[in-house]
Nucleic acid binder design. Structure first.
Lengths: 204, 204
DNA sequence: TTGACAAGTGACACGATGTCATTTAATATA
DNA sequence: TATATTAAATGACATCGTGTCACTTGTCAA
């Protein structure tokens, strides 16, 4: 969390800083972002930065949290609208998230957050189950007992594997990593959510 | 991927390097790890490091992938053993992963990978759905229409929320972040997998 | 007006990264 | 074997970024 001194700052100064940070964190992911760039852009001295924040990450997480705040109230209102149906509410938030992306900077900000922090690592762990090569993946597909699965065709096996390792969060990541169109992203999301609803296995 | 020169290295030199890297990446997460420490430990000159790898991350991902390789064959053999039942196979791999952790260094290596890269970010995105404070969480719990859900008690609402945002991967992260015992971690995993199997919603 | 405390400032020490000119080893060629 | 050619090894160095600290400036109460 930023220090109190940051919140004591006059609004315009706070905003300038936030704007400069947003710019830098849209340009590159956290690891490559530099405090020097931010303070240069915002015209504040180096020492002041450390008066306001512990470090780079402190500022970064603050920005992310600010972004998340608004979504939470949307989620709650969607829950009300859909009579407590979590999946409908979540789908509405997801759709809103994709459609209401204000500008490219905002988009890059999220992209940097989601990809660089999660994607490479998740890819590696995925190989545990999917293997490195397509042969290994094929072998696994063959091995899966599709009779027990509640699936219409082989393509959905892939969806099921995805769902098992993640679901909603994974969909965000995928949207940005594969540069899916909003429509495709939402379509995938809905398919996976329906699978979750109905259960991955056929009823006994 | 490491460069060819790395693979041309005599085995003992390669192993020394890998060991030194393992030590460093167990000590601290990727962002704080230093090449200087690794080459000092492995007694190789700085220039050589860049003869073998593009950068820190290149080496890091190589190590992670090596770790993942072995798990993939286990997953395949478990699929065979359980007649293609993915969830049984996955649960077996998860259990094996936790129980066969060779030493503390290995454990810290994974912990650094899973936590520092995913945890903080996931926490932030979680607030979209769970909110910051317990009031917000309570409000949401109240709003959820439990009649439609295939749950035995209110406690499982939380599990369902978790499952919706992730599942297996999330379980790894949670295991390390909350320092769960192996038994508790596996217990959680199994509960969530069963929910997935049966579907999150009651049958119409 | 003065004293005390909070905030602002920027030079600097420290450390890390990636490069590059140069040396050394390995391999092919005649 | 001698020589040419290519690959690998090396470590000094330029560059950049972080976090600190002694010092200055501002604020506000007594």
């Amino acid at each position: 969390m930023p220090k109190q001194t940051f919140f004591n700052l006059p609004e315009h100064k706070r905003n300038t800083l936030i704007e400069a940070a947003g710019k830098e964190f849209s340009r590159v992911p956290l690891a490559e972002a530099s405090i020097s760039n931010i303070i240069k852009e915002a015209h504040i001295p180096r020492g002041s930065f450390y008066q306001y924040f512990e470090n780079k990450e402190d500022l970064y997480l603050y920005l992310l949290k600010e972004e998340a705040k608004g979504r939470n109230s949307l989620f709650i209102s969607m829950l009300k609208k859909h009579n407590g149906d979590i999946i409908l509410a979540m789908t509405a938030v997801y759709r809103d998230f994709l459609e209401k992306m204000p500008d490219d900077q905002e988009r890059d900000f999220f992209k940097n957050a989601l990809l660089n922090v999660t994607h490479k690592l998740e890819n590696v762990f995925m190989t545990i189950f999917e293997g490195n090569n397509s042969e290994s993946m094929n072998q696994i597909s063959q091995l899966i007992n599709t009779e027990k699965l509640n699936i219409k065709d082989d393509k959905e096996i892939h969806h099921i594997i995805q769902i098992i390792t993640a679901v909603a969060f994974r969909n965000f990541v995928e949207k940005f990593s594969k540069e899916l169109s909003d429509e495709t992203a939402i379509e995938h999301f809905v398919i996976e959510m329906n699978l979750l609803k109905q259960g991955l296995y056929k009823r006994e």
